[in-house]
Design a protein around this nucleic acid. Structure first.
Ligand SMILES: [Mn+2]
Ligand SMILES: [Mn+2]
Ligand SMILES: [Mn+2]
Ligand SMILES: [Mn+2]
Lengths: 151, 151
DNA sequence: CACGTAACTTAGCCTAGGCTAAATTTCAGA
DNA sequence: TCTGAAATTTAGCCTAGGCTAAGTTACGTG
């Protein structure tokens, strides 16, 4: 009988720990992903990506942007020409493309299950960093299936 | 014609910033949620919640657990009787209940859209902290609808 | 009952990512 | 060309959340 495992037991400790470790890993890469995605968007839509605009759009001080950009440079994702705005390395462009594709997939999926567009965008900004490849594939399948029905 | 807004424009800066701010807020509360949820699980399933077990299951050192518990105590979520394990305050129990319900809703939803149980658990550990109330409601609707179909 | 081990805490360190205030640099307009 | 405002950087600070190593404390067992 047991309706919906209310007495779900705890997983093995090491497996449990691995889940949290994966989550911490995702948290660490989230900032880099958001920054390179934003830089790519600004380059495409405004022609240049300035630190001021990053600060404004991230809701953060310019000093914070400078520090973060320093880390992104150290990690080979961003290049700067002093007082000339920001550019993405090949690695940065690749990360941005992946981040953007993932972001848009998550948004479309959330809208498909009934969220309004603005909430979908808000939630996607966080959710995108924690969805595994398998989850993204499931989202894509769901969207594809839905299009078939509409076909 | 335009198939799927490839030229999606950037949102207003303040709205954009608000999304990131919300995400940072969610990140800040994630640790507390995971800890109180785990403490509640351990209390229920093992009868007590020891710091050692938290460390093992979180994949973190005992010193880290001590420090984190200190913050949770400061924030009125946890109580400790020295060398007697951990307990939740009323606020802690409430947060744990909400976290657990949300966790399970996310897991069920992920399974419903085609994820295997283990991946669902892994992803839920991160996703749960970034799904808005509206998103959770959409997940619940989806599950309810699915049960109707099966009915 | 004492004593070794496990549990816990403390001390000291680190990084990411926030902040403000104070330089510094660039650039456009008078 | 000069000069002031805007953009950027630097300096100095903070918290969360990690770590290791070195104490302390409690407890079960011989
Ligand atoms: Mn994001
Ligand atoms: Mn994004
Ligand atoms: Mn979690
Ligand atoms: Mn959880």
């Amino acid at each position: 009988m047991r309706s919906r495992a209310a007495e779900r037991t705890l997983p093995p400790a090491d497996e449990h720990a691995a889940r949290f470790a994966r989550q911490r890993e995702a948290d660490r890469s989230a900032t880099a992903e958001d920054y390179v995605e934003l830089i790519a968007d600004l380059l495409r839509e405004e022609g240049e990506a300035r630190a001021v605009d990053l600060a404004r759009r991230m809701g953060v001080s310019q000093a914070t942007v400078t520090a973060t950009i320093g880390r992104l440079q150290r990690d080979g994702l961003v290049e700067t020409k002093p007082y000339r705005g920001l550019f993405l390395t090949a690695a940065g462009q690749e990360m941005a493309a992946i981040a953007k594709a993932r972001h848009e997939l998550v948004v479309r999926f959330l809208i498909a299950i009934g969220l309004d567009a603005e909430t979908a965008e808000e939630d996607a900004e966080g959710l995108e960093h924690h969805a595994s490849e398998k989850a993204l594939a499931a989202f894509a399948r769901f969207l594809a299936m839905r299009e078939d029905d509409a076909g």
